[in-house]
């Protein structure tokens, strides 16, 4: 029944578009070329970064307070991570409990003294996520859903730590989008691609910013120079 409505509507919509003057029919190649033309470097207007170096630009942006509720640090090797995490617990007066994303580089670490497999449904827990990319322009990290990446890990805890390998920090959102365009071409798009730039916030009551609306209130980004 609904299938019928949908099919009829589809036909109606397509024929209305064909009939409308501003639309033109062209072959796919012409359209693709035109679309690529729009992505020519000369077309772009991007905001200025705080440094030519992507990692530095990202950190400067966070340090300047431009990424809501977010702090960052850089560590030289990954095995320093548990130490940094402990410091984060201390700073926020939190119990040493952590939900670690189950991903190879993090699993290998020595989490001694930290309970690592906790339930994240309740607040006051800390999530640790291994980011796919970092973006300097917006101070973001990117998470891709997958067998090892439950998307909710980024949304349920009140505290979140994201680890970004330095080599994966991009300058602009466009740099990430071009990677995504390639994934789309190869039909390898993950279910979710999340570009996260700061913590969950709302200004819905009298315009006052409150952090931790539904998701994290505190976000700490740790950049690893040498994985």
């Amino acid at each position: 029944m609904n299938k019928q409505i949908s099919d009829m509507s589809r036909e109606k919509i397509f024929s209305a578009i064909q009939a409308a003057k501003p639309t033109i029919t062209a072959d796919a190649k012409t359209i693709e070329d035109e679309a690529l033309e729009l992505l020519k470097e000369s077309e772009f207007a991007r905001p200025q970064l705080m440094s030519a170096d992507a990692t530095e630009a990202l950190m400067l942006r966070i340090d300047a307070g431009l990424v809501i509720g977010t702090t960052c640090e850089k560590i030289s090797t990954l095995d320093m991570l548990p130490h940094s995490v402990k410091q984060f617990f201390n700073k926020n007066a939190l119990p040493s409990e952590l939900k670690v994303q189950s991903v190879e580089p993090l699993n290998k670490l020595n989490w001694q003294g930290i309970t690592t497999d906790i339930d994240i449904v309740n607040d006051n827990t800390v999530g640790l996520c291994w980011a796919e990319y970092g973006v300097a322009e917006t101070g973001s990290f990117v998470a891709h859903s997958g067998p090892e990446m439950p998307i909710l890990l980024n949304f349920l805890p009140l505290y979140l730590i994201a680890v970004i390998p330095k080599s994966k920090i991009l300058h602009y959102m466009d740099d990430y989008a071009l990677i995504a365009n390639e994934m789309a071409k190869k039909k390898q798009t993950p279910r979710n691609m999340c570009l996260i730039s700061g913590v969950s916030g709302t200004t819905d009551i009298e315009g006052v910013l409150v952090k931790g609306a539904h998701g994290p209130e505190v976000l700490h980004i740790i950049i690893v120079e040498d994985e």
């Binding site: 431009l66 995504a180 279910r191 999340c194 570009l195 730039s197 913590v199």
Partner: peptide, 13 residues
């Protein structure tokens, strides 16, 4: 400059 969450949803799990 940006909102905190921009997510692209690509079908089911």
């Amino acid at each position: 400059d940006i909102t905190q969450y921009i997510t692209f949803h690509n079908g089911p799990k």
